[in-house]
Design a protein around this nucleic acid. Structure first.
Length: 399
RNA sequence: GGUGAGAUACUCAAGCGGCCAACGAGGGCAGACUGUAAAUCUGCUGGUUUUUACCUUCGGAGGUUCGAAUCCUCCUCUCACCA
């Protein structure tokens, strides 16, 4: 039992630190029925979860089946500082209301995956506002600058003389302290979080919690561009609240290579099955597009339902493979006569009339399926279907 | 605190009195090709209905000049070296 659970848990993970402890926890669950706590922290600034987050969340959901209680930490306090990992931009201070609002959104999204009965949502401001400045200084005495500079991005920035704010040193300490306050048994995070996750271990020791958490890191999921990690600020993400059509289309647009990565960390299919698909594609028995469709169907069905997923697929084929019009389009009413470029701008298909002119020149604009050649064209009364590029459509009534 | 260097469009980065809406690279958008892809090739990438024109942009505010991203003054910010 333990062995099987461990195997499933290990799938797709980047690294497990202190695997022995994980085994112990599992054993204890099966033999004595005792639960254990797994923690993961989330930033309250961006309440929209995307598939990159779900890699982590799905893993937690899996572990809930094996005795884990999830501590879903909303970093409302730490969020004010901002994790220095990656880009460093000063964070806006979030007011209480926004944080609560975001937390609500989190709940809605997260419980599509996690079991609510086995999940605690906690805010880390709860213990940090009570800590006080003395407590904070005490926290800082547990670590030193040299060790702190071991963190890769700090080291890089230090060497290249890029400024590091003192408050950024605080971040790993605070995140680690969450594990002290919550007495977590395991903490999950992306591979870029490794340093912070290990800090939890260090602090649990320093504060004599009586245990040191194991750490499980998950690989970072690349975004749609296939290069950078999926993130909202880069715009290469697939949000779990997106419409079935958008979600389906976005998944279909990833490259074939990336598809397998997605399969590994996002699909519920077991590894053998995925291996078979992979072989099938390699041997030419299975079209890669088919394989990708299956993936897209599975994921869309998870966040919507299988009917909607199926519809999204049909719609997708209709628009892209058969080059027919989508069944749903935004509709607008404009006054006649109207200049085509202006019309495109008003209905939001183009950012400016200048951009519209350029696209018309390039033959990217279609009216009722026919290329528009004349950039001076005035639309007279009637109904038109305007299209820019392959994906942007709108129905326009001119009167 | 002292000295020096720098701030250019989404990002990086040229330009250093007129030929600058500003080289180039990345990104983005579009076209061809395809499986809607990826890769590749090509075009575009400040705005404005009148587009071999006009307007707004090169950290901010003034000034010199027929003319300034380019020169001068002050301010703000960043970096480096020294203390």
């Amino acid at each position: 039992m333990v062995q099987k659970a461990l195997e499933e848990i290990k799938r797709g993970v980047a690294e497990i630190i202190d695997e022995e402890r994980v085994v112990k926890l599992l054993k204890n669950y099966y033999e004595n029925g005792e639960n254990y706590y797994i923690k993961a922290g989330f930033d309250p600034t961006a309440p929209d979860l995307h598939l990159g987050h779900t890699v982590l969340i799905q893993k937690m959901a899996l572990m809930q089946k094996y005795g884990a209680r999830v501590q879903f930490v909303i970093g409302d306090f730490t969020g004010m500082i901002g994790d220095p990992t990656g880009k460093n931009e000063t964070r806006k201070k979030l007011d209480r209301e926004t944080v609560l609002e975001n937390a609500k959104t989190y709940k809605q999204q997260v419980f599509k995956i996690l079991d609510p009965d086995k999940t605690d949502i906690v805010f880390n401001s709860k213990w940090f506002t009570q800590m006080g400045s003395i407590g904070l200084v005490e926290l800082t005495t547990t670590f030193n600058v040299a060790r702190m500079l071991e963190r890769e991005d700090f080291e890089k920035r230090f060497k290249s003389n890029t400024p590091i704010s003192i408050s950024e040193f605080l971040y790993p300490l605070l995140q680690g302290y969450d594990s002290v306050a919550l007495k977590s048994d395991i903490e999950l995070g992306g591979t870029d979080q490794k340093f912070n996750l290990l800090m939890g271990r260090h602090l649990q020791r320093a504060y004599n919690v009586g245990k040191e958490q194991a750490v499980i890191t998950m690989p970072l999921l690349e975004g749609l561009d296939g290069v950078n990690k999926m993130s909202k600020s880069l715009g290469n993400y697939i949000g779990i609240t997106e419409s079935p059509d958008d979600m389906f289309g976005k998944i279909m647009s990833i490259s074939d290579d990336l598809m397998w990565k997605y399969y590994e960390v996002l699909s519920n299919k077991d590894l053998e099955e995925i291996g078979e698909l992979k072989r099938g594609v390699k041997d030419g028995l299975l079209h890669p597009k088919k394989a990708k469709e299956m993936l897209a169907l599975e994921i869309v069905a998870r966040y919507h339902d299988s009917n909607k997923a199926q519809n999204a697929k049909v719609e997708f084929d209709k628009v892209h493979a058969k080059k027919e019009l989508p069944s749903d389009m935004d509709e607008f009413t404009l006054e006649a006569p109207i200049w085509i470029a202006k019309a495109l701008n008003i209905i939001g298909l183009e950012n400016s009339t200048s951009q519209a002119r350029r696209d018309i020149k390039q033959g990217a604009v279609k009216i009722d399926g026919k290329k528009c050649q004349d950039e001076q064209l005035q639309l007279q009364k009637g109904e038109y279907i305007l299209q820019v590029g392959k994906r942007k459509f709108a129905k326009v009534r001119v009167e």
